[in-house]
Design a protein around this nucleic acid. Structure first.
Lengths: 197, 197
DNA sequence: CGCGTGATTGAAACCCTTCAAGTTTAGTGG
DNA sequence: CCACTAAACTTGAAGGGTTTCAATCACGCG
């Protein structure tokens, strides 16, 4: 059980003490989700974090015009959730959906806080992970504020070459904040400049 | 010493044990910064968090055209820093500057990790604060992806009425990702619609 | 009072969107 | 394995929101 999660923690230098292992087996569970299946819906309370053991999830919102806006992709070894629900007991404001057939490990607030308490190395990992997440989000905000679509696209395929190949183009467009048509034109422009992925 | 920080922690239900108080006095320091003074520069290593006890700071980047893009404002009781430096020992990629004459408490990684280790209530506070920060950033990304300038502006003055009154308009424009001219026009439109702040 | 910073306004240009149509690709059932 | 269909991608033309550049106006501070 939780093989992928355990290996992930090891790679992050988490000291997998018997105590931590016991906590994991007591509080965690696994679940498989089919492509297109929805794990979290806006309006619902969902106090779970999902660690992606296999597959690919995405988090997105819909606006008043029904347009989707992708907030995050979560491939293997990423954690995705709606933090409003988990830490603040508010209803979610985003969807979490499986882009591919996936396997996730379900973490909850209980596990995270207890693991931090009983295991200093886990706490260090968690602090770093959260700060790193903040860093990524700031980087994305900076790009949205300062860079045109072409630059944002190049940044995306450089940062996430893996995801680029696994999701349809319109999802990348949605993540970048442009229309699929615009992304198509951006790619055409890049091709004309002899750019190769 | 650290009166504002102590009151802030109390308001967040942090249990201010003697042990934690001692750690604070051992590792924290205060500093006053004049309006316009710069605390962090891109390229420099700066392993400090700043808790704003009084005043207002801002974090911003400059792009290749020399244009500024404001990543965050930090009024009283906010923490600002460049997380690349603090947790990952990389050089900063943003400026941190005082918008007003300010007083800050300087926190470092050592304090934060130790405080989390010796004090469960501090750890809980810190976890919540980080998750809340992530939530705010996602909210902002969502707005940048989905909403036109007018909506983003209305959201800003609703969320940060205080900051709206304390910073020049061009800084708000920079935060929103538009030019000062555009913000001026947005405000004119709103005035025509009989909108009042 | 004069200077500099910030805010406003106008006109042209630009990036991106929208809408509509056509083309390609991928998946499914016969 | 082919045929069919739906989804994804491309392309074009028109329109909208925002930027750019330039000029003007308002205000606070030395």
């Amino acid at each position: 059980m939780f093989q992928e999660l355990i290996e992930y923690y090891q790679s992050k230098s988490v000291d997998l003490t018997p105590e931590l292992m016991e906590l994991m087996h007591l509080t965690l569970s696994e679940r498989t989700v089919k492509k297109g299946e929805i794990l979290v819906q806006p309006g619902e309370l969902n106090e779970q974090f999902y660690f992606v053991a296999k597959g690919l999830l995405r988090g997105y919102t819909t606006d008043l015009n029904g347009k989707e806006h992708i907030l995050q992709f979560a491939p293997e070894n990423w954690i995705i959730s709606d933090r409003s629900s988990v830490f603040f007991k508010e209803s979610s404001n985003q969807f979490v959906e499986a882009v591919e057939n996936s396997k996730v490990v379900i973490l909850n607030e209980d596990f995270l806080t207890k693991a931090c308490q009983i295991n200093p190395s886990f706490m260090m990992y968690n602090l770093k992970a959260l700060n790193n997440h903040i860093r990524q989000l700031q980087r994305r905000i900076n790009l949205l504020l300062s860079a045109p679509a072409e630059v944002r696209y190049l940044d995306f395929i450089k940062l996430y070459p893996d995801i680029t190949l696994r999701v349809p183009q319109w999802m990348i467009a949605s993540y970048l904040g442009i229309t699929p048509e615009s992304l198509s034109r951006v790619r055409k422009e890049l091709a004309n400049k002899n750019f190769r992925v």
